[in-house]
Nucleic acid binder design. Structure first.
Length: 842
RNA sequence: GCCGGAGUGGCGGAAUGGAAGACGCAGCAGACUCAAAAUCUGCCGAGGGCAACCUCGUGGGGGUUCGACUCCCCCCUCCGGCACCA
């Protein structure tokens, strides 16, 4: 041992030792007391900054704590290694994305190790390697076989900057989630996963995920967006010019059938597929076409905004309200979205604010069909719409009903008459997985002129990415320009055929990696159902809130599909979810507080910090910065404070090394302690209890660390002179030894070193987590605050065993207190044993 | 607009309905030093008082309670999600 804290030497020493002894290698053949601790696997972007570090440090601390508590901990790590940045780099530099990616992985792996984060590296998975994506493709085929993967033509989100289509989830306010470029709608043939078939289950099971933050569950509920209503068919008034319509009626979805007698017109989305046919040959056709063309030019960002003025044009056609047989005009309007419902809306301007605005603008009639509730003044429909509940009026047989009661009756009527039925509608869309890019898992499909769409036989997997391709984006996949890849033989008839050239969204890769970890080297199958039965679900998942919808919804969907395929027997993949807050920093001088990111130039590089202070310091500060679920601002001075604490701990051990060694066999005996020693011994066990509760519950590392600091401060109040007796030596040893154990999940290197210095053999991880000795918490006397009318006016010291009457008497007798109740009547005395006395006087 | 979350010293933050501000950072004073750094000791919400102490104080306003940062009602501000969703 050395006088000054040699963090560099001990960190290197213990990192090597842990690795050599395979401390986190876990045998999944056994699952008693299993604890599957999973951190979201990173995209290998190059280097990690301290903001990324929070996730891994948190997870590592949890894993270490659980291991000391006797759990069989599994903490694997891997790489979400497909993705655009590597391909974009390839376009710039010509370097193959794989080379680029694997180099980044090597760097990041070294960084994780330098942070003291330990994983079962034997289970490492890398999603861009054929031994992984082979199984991603295999899973695609299982989905295809079940009808859950399908190819369809649809208006899809196209990002011109990324030169690929995007899933709905990847479009934020009409812009690309990755690059913020406005997204365009294009009609394209694309591959989808039928996640909508699981919408109800994805929604229902959220209620049972009580280990998840409410925030995330709410976000998912919003995203799934279930609404109950009815689908109503409005027959078209037939054409008189001899032409016929593709369908005889226009259907629309509504949650407010109760207002349908107030419907005065109907509006179609500009993208309504049959619109052209509906207006063909009419005098209005030209105006309609011009309108549609203009609406198509509005970019997605503006289109999504509700500030946009509502525009529309009459089509020249009419439909019939099936409830009252009334002829109403059919319009096209840019406020109607093709993506939601059927792309047609029954407009009730009296009871819908958007319809109201549109009707006012174009002079369409506004007709009340719901009266305000009794006692409330009638809404002036010339000034605003009434959207609340009330009584149905002027609605034929339904008049007079409270509107909420009218809804089921009116739906029943539509069903009986055959023009409509109850309908549940979800906002959730099918998951578009095609990407027109190179660096992803190829979709294992072949197109044959004779046989059509043919899945690649499982035995032929993986469909490997070709080596020699031009990466420059053109709007079609780079794979389409690799003839050796495209040209193939039909697996069914052997005739020349061509391969699908799109690759899969990288969220497909990350939807099942937690299963692959459980049998990462299995060459025979994607994952081993028997091992999953033992080890799933993940006990604790830790990651960023930014994945609240995308990744976490997709992984839940996969889990449910795999359960239906009998490959898995859990409904949900992640029993407990912890979403840590972001680490933020002001950019430059007066910049805004923002999430660390390279593009904002506010990243803190861990390397200089590790060199100057060591990994334990960076870990301790990262955990101490604040409650882990909240965002936190990085402060370099705080790092210094964490380092100071570790150095003081080191020095305390060094200063006492003789005494501590001599006290090795001694156990502190509370009966033989003086008052100061008793207080310290009590503090020690209070700390054990508090820290254990903090870590078991909400991972409140910040308060746990504060407890260790308090314990050390309390230790300094009980000196250890050279002639100290064995009792005091034993107590000092107990405090330091326990502090080392309590600290070890956070600062594992120094803990290992001091543990060894105290005469134990490594690893500290194999030591048992300290237990509270209830006897240590007992006190002979306690000090109570005495309040008069809720204000502290004095203090009394009473035997811990004193009863209420004795405490009350002592409180009233206290001279300080007496001053405040003098001349007043004592109305009530509240005694809270162990805490305080409150005297109500006056 | 709807749904979540938050608002406490100069700063990060702590407080099963029971002594607001633990712990840390920054700051101030002192010790050590030729000096500085490091380290150690003390002080550190605001106002008043020579002092013991007193008054005010957890975004604002009401309420429940012997007692409210904590529970209830109303409002303000900030953050996040959803949103022309029919």
């Amino acid at each position: 041992m050395n006088e000054t804290y040699p963090f560099a030497a001990i960190e290197a020493k213990w990192q090597a030792w842990w690795e050599e002894h395979g401390l986190f290698a876990t045998d999944t053949a056994e699952s008693a007391d299993k604890y599957y601790c999973l951190m979201m696997f990173p995209y290998p972007s190059g280097t990690l900054h301290v903001g990324h570090g929070r996730n891994y440090i948190l997870g590592d601390a949890v894993a270490r704590f659980m291991k000391m508590r006797g759990r069989r901990v599994l903490t694997p790590m891997g790489w979400d290694a497909f993705g655009l940045p590597a391909e974009n780099a390839a376009i710039r530099t010509g370097e193959h994305p794989r080379t680029h990616t694997l180099r980044n992985i090597a760097v990041m792996k070294r960084q994780l190790r330098a942070w003291g984060c330990m994983y079962d590296w034997d289970r490492e998975v890398t999603s861009c390697l054929p031994d992984y994506y082979r199984w991603t493709q295999w899973l695609f085929l299982q989905f295809y076989r079940r009808g859950l993967a399908y190819r369809g033509r649809a208006a899809v989100n196209w990002c011109p900057s990324c030169a690929t289509v995007l899933a709905n989830e990847q479009v934020v306010n009409g812009a690309c989630e990755r690059c913020d470029h406005a997204v365009e709608l294009r009609q394209l043939d694309q591959w989808f996963f039928r996640i909508t078939a699981y919408a109800q289950r994805l929604l229902d099971d959220l209620d049972r995920l009580d280990g998840w933050p409410e925030r995330v569950r709410t976000m998912q509920r919003n995203w799934i967006g279930r609404s109950e209503g009815a689908e109503i068919r409005f027959p078209l008034v037939p054409r008189t010019d001899g032409r016929t319509d593709p369908s005889p009626a226009v259907s629309c979805f509504t949650t407010r059938v109760d207002t349908i007698y107030g419907c005065t017109y109907m509006v179609l989305a500009p993208e309504y597929p049959e619109l052209d046919a509906l207006v063909e040959g009419l005098p209005e056709a030209a105006a309609v076409r011009a309108f549609v063309e203009k609406a198509g030019r509005i970019n997605a960002i503006d289109r999504a905004s509700d500030e946009l003025e509502k525009n529309g044009v009459f089509t020249g056609r009419h439909v019939v309200n099936p409830y009252n047989g009334e002829r109403i005009p059919l319009w096209v309007g840019d406020y109607v979205l093709m993506e939601y419902g059927s792309g047609a809306v029954m407009a009730v301007p009296a009871h819908d604010t958007r319809d109201w605005v549109f009707a006012r603008r174009y002079g369409l009639p506004i007709r009340r069909s719901i009266r305000n509730p009794e006692g409330e003044p009638e809404t002036d429909l010339a000034r605003e719409a009434f959207t609340g509940d009330g009584t149905v009026v002027d609605s034929g047989p339904f008049s007079g009903l409270p509107n909420r009661e009218a809804i089921p009756q009116m739906i029943a009527h539509a069903a009986a008459e055959g023009f409509g039925e109850a309908r549940v509608h979800f906002r959730l869309r099918d998951w578009l997985i095609s990407r027109q890019r190179y660096w992803g898992a190829p979709i294992p499909i072949v197109y044959c002129e004779a046989c059509g769409v043919v899945p690649v036989p499982e035995a032929d997997l993986p469909v490997e990415l070709p080596e020699d391709v031009a990466f420059a984006p053109t709007g079609e996949s780079p794979l389409a320009r690799a003839p050796s890849f495209v040209r193939t033989a039909c697996p069914r008839c052997g005739a020349p055929a061509r391969r699908e050239t799109d690759t899969m969204d990288t969220f497909v890769d990350s939807s099942w990696y937690f299963l692959r970890y459980l049998s990462a080297r299995d060459g025979e199958r994607a994952f081993d159902t028997a091992v999953c039965d033992r080890w799933m679900p993940v006990d604790q998942y830790i990651g960023g809130i930014e994945h609240a919808i995308l990744h976490l919804m997709y992984a839940r969907f996969f889990t449910k599909v795999l359960k239906d395929l009998d490959l898995l027997h859990v409904d949900e993949p992640f029993a407990h979810l912890f979403t840590q807050g972001m680490i933020c920093k002001r950019s430059e001088r007066d910049g805004p507080l923002a999430k660390m990111s390279k593009s904002k130039g506010n990243v803190v590089d861990p390397e200089p910090l590790l060199a100057a202070y060591g990994a334990d310091t960076v870990r301790l500060y990262t955990l101490f910065i604040g409650p882990p679920e909240r965002d936190a601002e990085w402060n370099d001075a705080g790092v210094e404070g964490a380092h100071r604490f570790l150095r003081r701990l080191w020095t305390r051990v060094w200063d006492r090394r003789e005494a501590l060694r001599e006290a090795a066999g001694l156990r502190p005996d509370p009966a033989a302690m003086d008052e100061a020693e008793r207080a310290l011994y009590r503090k020690l066990h209070l700390a054990i209890g508090k820290i254990t509760r903090d870590l078991e519950g909400a991972f409140h590392f910040n308060t746990a660390i504060a407890q260790i600091m308090e314990l050390m401060n309390a230790l300094d109040d009980v000196p250890l002179p050279a002639d100290a007796g064995p009792q005091r030596r034993a107590l000092h040893r107990a405090v330091i030894e326990t502090a080392v154990l309590l600290l070890s999940p956070f600062a594992p290197h120094i803990a290992e070193e001091l543990w060894q210095e105290l005469g134990h053999s490594p690893s500290v991880l194999n030591a048992a987590w300290p237990e509270v000795d209830p006897a240590a918490l007992e006190r002979d006397t306690v000090e109570l605050a005495v309040q008069v009318n809720g204000r502290v006016r004095g203090h009394i010291r009473v035997p811990a065993s004193a009863d209420r009457a004795a405490i009350e008497a002592a409180a009233l007798a206290d001279p300080q207190v007496a001053r405040w109740i003098e001349g007043q009547a004592v109305r009530k005395v509240v005694v809270v044993p162990g805490r305080l006395v409150n005297i109500a006087a006056g």
